[in-house]
Design a protein around this nucleic acid. Structure first.
Lengths: 212, 212
DNA sequence: GACTTGACAAACTCTACGATTCTGTAAATC
DNA sequence: GATTTACAGAATCGTAGAGTTTGTCAAGTC
């Protein structure tokens, strides 16, 4: 799986010149006034195009919702990928950056939280549409994370990595919904845990927990 | 209903003779037809008492909801306590039993899942009332678990235990909402992880993951 | 003394219905 | 290509009236 929005952007950036502005406007309105406040007419008016053009670009309102969710999910996953790119030789560092990034992003991102909320069983009242995509959030995130971790820890068994990654992903999602500390401290703790669980014996990682 | 609710009846049995039947009936109706199907008149009729007696026992419908949630939460926490009682010298074993128990219980327990769902941000459409209690689910569960783990691992730092327990609790809650495997296998993996993270160096716990 | 009965106001839910808005599609126009 | 206009069907909104339910009385019964 390629990094950043490349492959994923292919899913969102394809389309006419108005697709991106429409998505951005739709996300903005949803975040501030809720999904129900998003109407095709309003999007058209705000961007300065005709309603018909909106339909030509996004197809239907359901498709628009899907695209919005995909767009947010891309940011989410791109962030994780970026963190691992920045720390090719430092797994705890990568985990710290990834967790911190996701938590910070989620803090002021209504839509992302709605997606996570939906993943975690909630109704969210605002997007019963994202079920298709949201069902696979844990699966997708786990998959790309496991892939990245595997390259950091070639000596650790796949099963072991799967366990650690599954727990890491679910813990982060849970902290998005119910934070119990600052993003920085949560990231610190999870990074420590990842280092400890996925220690391959070669590094000099101290097993004591220590604040960053 | 595998395990009867009398385990910690002490916490809930306070009150008149009708309190328990009322709670049981309310839980039963909620599980099958939803919270809106629970009316004071219906509870009275089903038990064979007057509506006024129901009010005398539980006070109000909101109080009834609170009592129901408390009742389910007690089962939940008692299960964890029991698992640790059964394995005083085996932390992974205790974690396995606790996780397995919670996951099995949650599988056929609508109300418990509603509580967890609420904790994890969702609305659940059926109990917007449990916010008071549900907010503290993670906190409470983490607290009693940490306490238990501390007695198993006197040599491990409190901070270290807090991190492991927080992650464990959140992972379990997440698996209640979105299982990715059987309760047995999930419990197995989390027990392994707990053993690994909380290894105090004294045990001969193998660091390889192995099926149970 | 504990429980029941009947009565009651206030709040809430259910239903129905017309007005309004929105979606989605099509054709004509620039 | 994009826009405008037009339109049918669906969804939403606001309203108003009927019916339930809640929560609290006080009087009655075992």
């Amino acid at each position: 799986m390629a990094i950043m929005g490349d492959t994923l952007a292919a899913a969102t950036a394809v389309g006419g010149q108005y697709r991106q502005p429409i998505l951005v406007a739709a996300i903005e309105i949803t975040a501030r006034e809720g999904w129900s406040a998003v109407t095709m007419a309003r999007l058209a008016e705000r961007i300065g195009i005709s309603r018909q053009t909106v339909y030509n670009e996004v197809g239907s309102k359901t498709a628009l919702a899907e695209a919005m969710v995909a767009h947010e999910l891309d940011r989410f996953l791109a962030l994780v990928g970026g963190a691992f790119d920045r720390h090719p030789d430092d797994l705890p560092g990568a985990v710290y950056d990834a967790v911190r990034g996701v938590l910070d992003l989620a803090a002021d991102n209504v839509l992302l939280r709605a997606v996570v909320s939906a993943t975690h069983g909630g109704d969210a009242e605002l997007l019963p549409l994202l079920t298709t995509r949201a069902d696979t959030l844990i699966t997708e995130a786990t998959a790309i994370l496991a892939e990245r971790v595997r390259s950091h820890r070639p000596g650790v068994s796949a099963e072991q990595i799967d366990v650690a990654v599954d727990v890491l992903v679910r813990a982060v999602l849970s902290h998005v919904m119910q934070p119990s500390d600052t993003p920085a401290r949560t990231a610190d703790r999870l990074a420590w845990l990842a280092g400890r669980v996925l220690d391959d014996g070669s590094s000099g990682v101290p097993l004591r927990y220590g604040g960053r």
